[in-house]
């Protein structure tokens, strides 16, 4: 029961402190929200790259290009055969006209190339999505077919992208760590300033017998509120930025499907980011409050 009474007191006092030092609280919230917005942006990039890589690894899409003299029937027969194999989730026969239309959508100059060449140079191809890469060895299966000219698989690209992604992830983590430290430092200093401004009150509280936890805990609550407000605002601001970038800028990059498919973070990530911000508030303010000494 006493614990609840004490906790209620800390919350009330912390809220009163938070509203009393409005300008300082706003400054702290601003810094935290900028940091959290940047962390949200980076997390979105990381989340999408990670998802893309995972999808490419778990469900790779092979493009099988057939020789120029392959007839539509031969292509269709091969596609039907591939559909019967285990471990394949999707087979699509792509005729040259469809390939050219797709290419023209991504690169408007493709139409000009077709005119210059007086015909469609693109071959019949088959798009193959693998459900369980461990079950099927695509290259081995297709080796016996003379109509198969070349096979494009994402593995080479995947390994390059993976090493690039891990390098980028390291820098993202480094920048995020710097932002977290900067926010904790800001909260620490803001709470230190409020403690200095209330030094007289703190001395009086101590002289009338207030326990240190009664004096320190409201400052921790104040820091937590700054962290929570900054976290929510930063996450909203960050996702707003992602929305604007996606709808206004990335739509122009049709030829890079990854960019046009960028999605915002799932709710669990937002909860995690806000919790991180709250933890920064708790840590910074607890450090500052722990420096209050006995009178």
């Amino acid at each position: 029961m006493k614990l609840f009474i004490d906790f209620g007191f800390y919350i009330r006092e912390g809220w009163a402190n938070f509203t009393r030092s409005r300008m300082l609280s706003l400054f702290s919230i601003l810094i935290i929200s900028i940091s959290i917005a940047i962390i949200t942006l980076f997390s979105t990039v990381f989340f999408n790259v990670d998802n893309y890589l995972r999808e490419m690894e778990n469900n790779p899409v092979y493009s099988i290009f057939l020789t120029p003299d392959t007839s539509a029937k031969e292509g269709k027969d091969l596609a039907l055969y591939l559909e019967t194999l285990k471990g394949i989730s999707d087979v699509k026969l792509v005729m040259p006209d469809e390939s050219m239309k797709k290419l023209a959508r991504r690169f408007p100059l493709a139409g000009e190339i077709q005119k210059t060449l007086e015909g469609n140079p693109l071959p019949i191809s088959i798009r193959l999505r693998i459900a369980t890469p461990s079950v099927i060895k695509v290259r081995q299966v297709l080796k016996q077919y003379s109509i198969v000219e070349s096979i494009y698989s994402p593995h080479f690209f995947l390994s390059q992208l993976k090493s690039l992604s891990s390098a980028v992830s390291f820098f993202i983590a480094l920048i995020a760590a710097i932002l977290v430290l900067a926010s904790v430092f800001t909260i620490y200093n803001v709470i230190r300033i409020t403690i200095l401004a209330r030094q007289n009150d703190i001395a009086i509280m101590q002289l009338v017998g207030a326990d240190m936890k009664f004096i320190r805990a409201p400052f921790t609550v104040e820091g937590t509120l700054q962290g929570l407000s900054g976290g929510i605002l930063g996450a909203l601001f960050g996702s707003g930025l992602i929305y604007i970038i996606r709808t206004h800028y990335l739509v122009h990059f049709q030829y890079l499907p990854f960019l046009s498919r960028i999605t915002s973070l799932p709710p669990s990530y937002f909860v995690g980011i806000i919790l991180l911000s709250v933890a920064m508030g708790i840590f910074g303010s607890t450090m500052a409050a722990s420096r209050i000494d006995y009178v």
Binding site: D201, Q206, V208, G209
Partner: peptide, 21 residues
């Protein structure tokens, strides 16, 4: 142990020491 010690002592300060806010 200072807070517990002070809780049993009531003090009327010369300068009152009231919490202004």
């Amino acid at each position: 142990r200072i807070p517990d010690f002070r809780k049993k002592i009531g003090v009327v300060f010369q300068d009152f020491k009231l919490l202004e806010n």
